[in-house]
Design a protein around this nucleic acid. Structure first.
Lengths: 66, 66
DNA sequence: AGAAAATGTAAAGTATATTTGTCATATAGT
DNA sequence: ACTATATGACAAATATACTTTACATTTTCT
């Protein structure tokens, strides 16, 4: 799976720490997701959807290996 | 979080086992998600999105407690 | 250049997703 | 009523998300 969270975050001009606080996770969780170190839960995806005001499918996409 | 997977599955007229095989998980995983026993990963949500041919936000929604 | 803020990442611990196996109950078809 | 199929659910084991702490590197601002 790949994501464009870094881009969405840039659009809002907020830091990893600020985004983390908005959705109630640690900064490292945001950092790890942006770095594709692990796959977030659907609850987290929906919260990002709220913050970015876009559907989950807009910034999370399946890749070959999924 | 709440979901309408049971409904989407009924629309396609497939069993929990068939849906599980389509997205590569066990039948119990589908059963547990439908029963809200746990929150699936985003990869799983995207795969369901493909099978149902609908965006993730269409069948997964945040609730008060999220 | 130098200081402050932001990012990348790693390790250890905790929480939770997912699997496999199993059994009970419900539903559908004959 | 009988049989087969589908569903609900639990327990133990394994995998992985997420937290906290901590430190190094990079970027930004003056």
């Amino acid at each position: 799976m790949e994501n464009t969270i870094k881009v969405e975050r840039a659009i809002l001009s907020i830091t990893q720490d600020e985004l983390a606080k908005k959705i109630g996770v640690s900064r490292q969780t945001i950092n790890s997701i942006e770095a594709n170190r692990y796959v977030p839960s659907t609850v987290l995806a929906l919260k990002l959807s709220e913050v970015f005001n876009k559907p989950v499918n807009a910034f999370f996409k399946l890749t070959e290996d999924d």
